[in-house]
Design a protein around this nucleic acid. Structure first.
Lengths: 341, 341
DNA sequence: TCCATTTACGCGAGCGGTTGCACTATCCCG
DNA sequence: CGGGATAGTGCAACCGCTCGCGTAAATGGA
């Protein structure tokens, strides 16, 4: 391995000067800097990241915690995050879902392996998280509102989104609605569904227990639930899914049964890219995923550079996007269910 | 920040002994180890990753280069990779696509910031890559066959897959085929399409120039191309897309036009999760994505632990998966949801 | 031309761990 | 009960880089 000493020897300067040629802050004569850089080039010198981290307490790495990359919402989020972070000169290490990824990420920040962490997972608080916040670790929560925790976050107004869906459905005369929510721990799902239910109740169209389901944010679970509910005696004329991924599952099942928007509206949440594909044409509530990701990245970097900055919360207003899955006349067109297995 | 010295003081041992309590290899009396661990616990001690890397020349991090997380193929690949790597005690840093990500990743390995790199991008060779291989850096290529480069790789037999598609189509009597290939640099696309074209020619059904397109692995580009080709005087009765993502685009357009498998088969490549969704029901060539990812992870770790191990190539045989997008006998049904532009 | 001021570079002390070596305490066996 | 082997711990030298301090060189003004 070639070190700064080797470069120094070749360039005829001290090792410290080699270091100065790298850190733009320190003063060095242009001529010598050029000589050093030439020597680096010749030797193919690359500074040792670990050594730099050890001295500077900066790793140039940030952690990103996602919960399921098979879910396009997280994939798009990560896509944008890696993009903006690398533009800002940071690398991104990714923790994927399951089990201990939160604790792992917080441990990594303790190890000085990462300069900060972005959580995109929608689960609630945890002792480790609170402790990390207490220690003033640079943390950003995207799409996850933990009350009373002083840290940066960027969120969509899920409660407003849920109400918008209720209003939309009622105004179209669809009031027999099935609700497929996400996992109980996910605050995003809770906010969306609770405000949805409250608004439906306000409007006099309470959603009965037997029309409420937990789809765990999963395509297959939602498809299954839809199958169950659409083969019942009393069927809904609309389904609200707490995210797009589940809505795709619902649409898949309806398509199997040869059912249409006429028969049953489907509404999702997030507006991932696929929602606009012709095969789905999904009515949904738009969250500006890429913008939220970019903002999250920005907030984290600002905080890394200024740990004393007061925490900020950036909120995005939801926007109903109307597409084919809620198009068509209000009246039902019979002839169902007709399952194909 | 609490260091091993602090722990040593509290536990009444030397700093070196604290270190020994961490590295399982070194000998230490169980009693003292327990005392040290207790002290660590009390002080919330976490070893400094950078310092460890500096001494041991191991970072416990591996790099993963992907080219587009909005493409579910890469998302699933990364999903599995992060899973197996974290199981093996490694963190994963992700480079995303565009421009310099290859060079960045190879630089990171030079910085000792990562112990190895997995490339999942299907582009051809590059000088930097060859140099890194020369230096015996731990590298694994997934889904990317660079000839004459001595490094580990895991690939699907793309040529066999392309031929299988040609045979499948011809045996069904579909011979007016449009081909939507990936970007020219992608060896995977080249292998699939060239062998496909060769086999079609062998069978006496040459694919004319005006039925060959470059869809750049992109959903929207493929949708666009399909729109163009299906509004011509002479239309194909089948479309072979070099990956599933483009096939979804083709299906979307066919659906807009209210066309069905009767009118035009669609075949993709990869068999991502979505391909089996009822809305697509896409006939495709299966690559065992998750298994390939797991194998790639394993190969990299083996090589990190034994740099002298001769490079291995693991090849997976392709499997045609037949679904609705090539089910000719099924009668037309009304399209749902009906697209509204 | 000479002195005061600025600028550029070398020196060396760490950053927080790991590990070879030396030393002591302990053990086993005759 | 004594001597050699062994296990457990401390000491100190690094790993490669950054940066404060001090000095030599360069600069500017009179």
């Amino acid at each position: 391995m070639v070190t700064s000493h080797d470069v120094a020897r070749l360039a005829g300067v001290s090792q410290a000067t080699v270091s100065r040629a790298l850190t733009s802050s320190s003063k060095i004569r242009p001529a010598t800097k050029a000589r050093v850089l030439a020597a680096m080039q010749e030797l193919n010198y690359v500074p040792h990241a670990g050594a730099q981290t050890l001295r500077t307490r900066r790793s140039g790495v940030v952690g990103v915690v996602v919960s399921d990359l098979a879910n396009p919402f997280y994939a798009q989020m990560l896509d944008e995050l890696t993009r903006v972070l690398s533009l800002a000169g940071y690398r991104a290490v990714v923790w994927n879902a399951g089990g201990g990824s939160h604790a792992d990420a917080l441990q990594a920040i303790g190890e000085n392996a990462v300069d900060g962490v972005i959580f995109t997972t929608a689960t609630a608080s945890s002792p480790e998280l609170l402790e990390a916040v207490d220690r003033n670790r640079p943390l950003v929560l995207i799409n996850r509102d933990v009350e009373g925790v002083a840290c940066d976050r960027v969120i969509g107004d899920n409660a407003a989104g849920g109400r918008a869906v209720a209003d939309f459905l009622c105004e179209r005369g669809r009031t027999e609605i099935a609700l497929i929510s996400g996992p109980a721990e996910a605050t995003t799902s809770r906010d969306r569904t609770e405000s949805f239910l409250a608004r439906m109740r306000e409007r006099g169209h309470d959603v009965p227990e037997h029309f409420r389901f937990d789809g765990a944010f999963s395509h297959d679970a939602a498809a299954q639930i839809t199958r169950r509910v659409m083969t019942r005696e009393v069927r809904p004329d609309g389904i609200f899914c707490a995210n797009d991924n589940m809505a795709f599952g619902a649409l898949d099942t309806l398509r199997e049964f040869d059912l249409h928007a006429d028969d049953c509206y489907v509404i999702g949440y997030d507006d991932v890219d696929m929602a606009s594909w012709a095969s789905f044409s999904l009515t949904t509530v738009r969250q500006p995923i890429r913008e939220m990701a970019a903002t999250g990245g920005r907030l984290l970097i600002e905080r890394i550079n200024d740990p004393e900055r007061p925490p900020q919360t950036v909120t995005y207003a939801p926007v109903m996007i109307e597409r084919g899955s809620t198009a068509g006349a209000i009246s039902r067109r019979g002839s169902f269910p007709r399952a194909r297995g």
